[in-house]
Nucleic acid binder design. Sequence first.
DNA 1: CAAGATATGTCCGAACAAGGACATATTGTA
DNA 2: TACAATATGTCCTTGTTCGGACATATCTTG
Lengths: 110, 110
Amino acid sequence: MSETYEKEIVQHIIRNLLDIQLLRIIQAQPTWGYQIKKQVELDFNVKLRHGALYPALNNLAVKGFVESKRQRKDGRARKVYSITESGKIYLETYFNVLQGRLGRIKTKSE
Amino acid sequence: MSETYEKEIVQHIIRNLLDIQLLRIIQAQPTWGYQIKKQVELDFNVKLRHGALYPALNNLAVKGFVESKRQRKDGRARKVYSITESGKIYLETYFNVLQGRLGRIKTKSE
DNA sequence: CAAGATATGTCCGAACAAGGACATATTGTA
DNA sequence: TACAATATGTCCTTGTTCGGACATATCTTG
C-alpha cells in the first residue's frame, strides 16, 4: 500500500533534497559523482541527471560540507568526495530539525 | 554549534518541504491557513508567505492528502483542513523512505 | 581501431517557483 | 468609524531550476 507512493516520494526527495541525500551518501563512505549516479539509479530506479549532480557536488564543496581530491584508482581518474566535520554537523542538525522540532508544533490547546 | 545551521535549515525545509511540513502540522490536528502561518512564524522565526501557503494547501487537497470544510468558529470564517487516510500513509511513507531505507527499495511487488 | 563505458564538466531555452503586490470580506478595538 | 487583525485568495514580474544537449578525455573490450 505504502509502496504506491514510494516512486513518487523518491522523486520528491531527489528533486528537493538532493544536497541532503548527497551528504548522506558521502557520509556513508567517500565516493565520486559517477558512482553516486549509478548507485542511486540502481537502488531507487530513478534517473539522476549528471548535469544536476556535478554542480550540486561542487556546491556542497563550496559550502565546506564536503571536500574532494582527484584520485587515480583502477586506472580511472576520479574526483572523490568525503564529508567534513561541518558537513556531519549540518546533516545531523538537519535530521534533528526534521524529526524533532518541526514535529512538535504547539497549538493553543496544548 | 549545531545552532549555527538551524535557521538556515528551517529555511531549507520551508522552501523545499513545505507540502510535507503542512501535512505534519495538519496531522497533529486540524487547522487553517492563517493559523499555520502565525504558528510557523512564531515558532521558527521564518516568514511564511500566504501567497505560497494557500496554493500549497489547495494543492494538498487536490492530491487528496487533506480535506477542508469551511467553518465558523469564534466568530471567524475559516477553511479548516484535516488529514485523510491517504495523507497519513503518504506522510508515513515519506519519512520511512527518508530515514534509512536506502538501498532496500526494490520493486513495487513487495 | 571503433564502440561503449567511465568520468566530469558547461550551456541554453523552456518550464516553474519566488516575492511582493493586488484584492476582498469580516471582526475587534480605540 | 477608522484601523488593525483575521482570513483567503489571485496576479505579475523576476529569478531559478530542469531537461537535454554539447563537450572532452580516458579506459576497456571485441
